[in-house]
């Protein structure tokens, strides 16, 4: 109170000076803050570069033709590379129809607000569920038979008992990533302009015809982007696979499409080499990490490039 009254009683010039001072101080703060924000941006970019370059530079000396192609886990990761792509392919086989189908329903058909809210909550909860727990779910439902899943009186519904195999791993990966597939496919479908749908309907096509023959083809570049983003997540997943897909198997399984053999992927392999070091793991682990990060970056950068091309395509701008 006293301070204000003194301030009030100050002559006009002095008050003008304090106002000017305050403005000057605000401008200095503004400069400091702007500098800090630039610093943060630089820091984040540098730490990203550090993570990538560190992995690349550490791993590079370990890369050789034999390392990349050998199916024997003592000398190379050929089997793990094969498993990674094979599990990715299998999981996409399950995931794409469900994810894209659900996205088509949400974007083109769904009118029930309450159902949509529940669905959105479910996808969000599923994407935030620890992947380890989804792995347990896969273990109970796909890998083992011993645990009754649901018991109603004398009736017991058991797991599928597929064992620690490629197919268990792929199914678990599909469960884990279906919400991501759904979400990204939804974005891809929403990116198709309204006019495209309206034109098709105006030509007399039914809703189903225009969805399948017009909207879906127009969304294909977007869907490819979304599949690539999800693929990047699938090949990086570790925790969900450890109790579902099993550890190393015989070198002869490289290029063998059998579903009922263990299917250790690159990410899983890298984790094991780091978490349980053996004599040989020193030589293998950094090379494995390098191959993993290169693949993940290829998928993600590929997704961005296709996404940008798609954007140009729809906005009608020429590059």
């Amino acid at each position: 109170m006293a301070v204000t009254s003194i301030a009030r009683s100050q002559p006009l010039q002095a008050r003008a000076r304090t106002v000017a001072n305050r403005r000057a101080r605000a401008r200095v703060y503004d400069k400091i803050a702007t500098g800090t924000l630039w610093g943060i941006a630089g820091f984040i970019t540098l730490s990203f570069l550090f993570v990538v370059l560190y992995t690349l530079l550490q791993g590079l000396p370990h890369i050789s033709w034999q390392f990349l192609t050998s199916g024997d886990f003592n000398t190379g990761i050929g089997l793990q590379i094969f498993n990674t792509f094979y599990l990715l392919f299998l999981s996409l086989l399950f995931m794409v129809p469900v994810g894209v189908g659900a996205a088509i329903y949400i974007v083109e058909y769904a009118r029930n607000e309450r159902f949509l809210r529940v669905l959105r909550f479910a996808t969000e909860t599923l994407t935030s569920t620890p992947t380890l727990i989804v792995g347990f779910f896969g273990f109970i439902v796909f890998s083992t038979y011993v645990y009754p899943i649901i018991s109603i009186g004398p009736l017991h519904l058991h797991g599928l008992g597929l064992g620690f195999t490629r197919i268990s791993g792929a199914l678990t990966l599909a469960v884990l990533n279906v919400p991501w597939m759904l979400r990204t496919a939804e974005d891809a479908l929403r990116a198709v302009p309204r006019g495209v749908r309206e034109a098709s309907l105006a030509m007399g096509a039914t809703k189903w015809q225009s969805t399948i023959r017009v909207v879906l083809p127009a969304a294909i570049p977007g869907l490819v982007t979304s599949i690539l983003i999800v693929a990047g997540r699938v090949i990086g997943e570790t925790a969900a696979l450890i109790y579902t897909t099993g550890a190393t198997s015989s070198a002869s399984n490289i290029f063998n499409p059998a579903l009922n053999v263990p299917g250790e992927t690159l990410a899983y392999h890298a984790y094991v080499l780091f978490a349980e070091p053996t004599q040989n793991s020193e030589n293998l682990r950094l090379g494995t990490a390098l191959v993993l990060i290169v693949l993940v970056l290829l998928f993600n950068v590929g997704a961005r490039i296709i996404g940008a091309a798609l954007n140009r395509h729809f906005s009608g701008k020429q590059a």
Partner: peptide
């Protein structure tokens, strides 16, 4: 550019973060 960097950051697998954590 920074947005792209942040989104690529999102794609890096946790095992890579683990190894950089462990070694650095």
């Amino acid at each position: 550019f920074l947005r792209s960097v942040v989104e690529l950051f999102l794609g890096i697998p946790s095992v890579i973060f683990g190894l950089v954590g462990l070694l650095v």
